[in-house]
Simulated assay, not measured.
Amino acid sequence: MTFDEFRRSTVHDTPPAGLSTPLLALWWDARGDWGRAHAQAQASEDAVSALVHAYLHRKEGDLANAGYWYRRAGRVPPEVTLDQEWAAIAAELLR
């Protein structure tokens, strides 16, 4: 799936089949369902899920918690908008 296909899929009521857990989290976030997105991000303990988890807490405004998850992901908090971060993470995961 390309980034553009993924982005367009967020207008539908259900996510496309076969998305990874971190991509599902981003998909639900794009749909405005932070709770479902957060549940997906918490479902795995790998670095990619930690990155999505960090992004979600940054979006929530809980920067201390976000910082913890960025460290777990081996990343530093980005100096970009939330939309730019969402797109960068999604593009990275779809490569």
Rank of each mutant, 00 (worst) to 15 (best):
50 A>M: 01
25 A>T: 07
75 R>P: 05
60 E>W: 01
88 A>G: 09
46 D>A: 07
1 M>E: 13
10 T>Y: 07
84 Q>F: 02
15 P>D: 12
22 P>D: 09
16 P>Y: 09
15 P>C: 10
21 T>S: 14
71 R>V: 03
58 R>N: 06
17 A>Y: 13
37 A>G: 15
46 D>V: 08
4 D>R: 14
13 D>N: 10
26 L>K: 07
35 G>N: 15
34 W>T: 03
68 Y>D: 11
23 L>R: 10
81 T>I: 01
58 R>G: 02
43 A>P: 07
28 W>R: 08
23 L>A: 10
94 L>H: 01
15 P>T: 00
4 D>M: 10
28 W>L: 00
84 Q>R: 06
50 A>G: 06
7 R>W: 09
78 P>F: 05
3 F>T: 13
64 A>K: 14
11 V>D: 13
52 V>G: 03
44 S>I: 08
67 G>Q: 11
78 P>W: 05
1 M>W: 09
88 A>S: 11
23 L>V: 02
72 R>D: 08
75 R>I: 03
49 S>D: 08
90 A>K: 04
53 H>P: 02
59 K>W: 12
19 L>Y: 11
28 W>D: 09
2 T>W: 00
64 A>M: 08
53 H>V: 01
73 A>L: 04
32 G>K: 13
95 R>I: 03
93 L>S: 08
35 G>C: 14
1 M>N: 13
78 P>L: 08
36 R>V: 15
63 L>A: 07
60 E>Y: 10
12 H>I: 05
72 R>Y: 11
2 T>V: 01
64 A>G: 15
35 G>S: 15
21 T>H: 13
38 H>I: 06
91 A>K: 10
81 T>A: 06
34 W>F: 15
23 L>D: 07
82 L>R: 02
6 F>V: 08
76 V>C: 00
93 L>F: 05
7 R>E: 15
38 H>C: 06
41 A>L: 04
22 P>L: 06
69 W>T: 02
86 W>F: 08
70 Y>S: 09
72 R>Q: 15
9 S>M: 05
25 A>M: 05
50 A>Q: 08
70 Y>F: 13
91 A>R: 14
8 R>T: 10
18 G>P: 13
35 G>E: 15
88 A>F: 00
45 E>D: 13
40 Q>K: 12
65 N>S: 09
40 Q>Y: 14
74 G>Q: 08
29 D>E: 15
80 V>N: 01
67 G>K: 11
83 D>M: 02
29 D>M: 14
36 R>F: 10
64 A>N: 09
70 Y>E: 11
2 T>A: 05
71 R>Y: 12
30 A>M: 15
75 R>T: 00
41 A>W: 03
6 F>Q: 07
26 L>D: 06
5 E>T: 10
47 A>N: 10
68 Y>E: 12
5 E>K: 11
55 Y>P: 00
47 A>T: 05
46 D>F: 01
26 L>R: 03
86 W>P: 03
3 F>H: 11
85 E>N: 00
8 R>S: 14
39 A>N: 12
28 W>V: 01
31 R>C: 07
36 R>K: 15
4 D>H: 14
33 D>V: 11
8 R>N: 14
53 H>D: 02
95 R>V: 03
43 A>K: 11
62 D>V: 03
59 K>D: 11
3 F>Y: 15
72 R>W: 09
63 L>C: 00
56 L>K: 04
82 L>D: 11
41 A>Y: 06
2 T>C: 06
55 Y>R: 03
88 A>L: 10
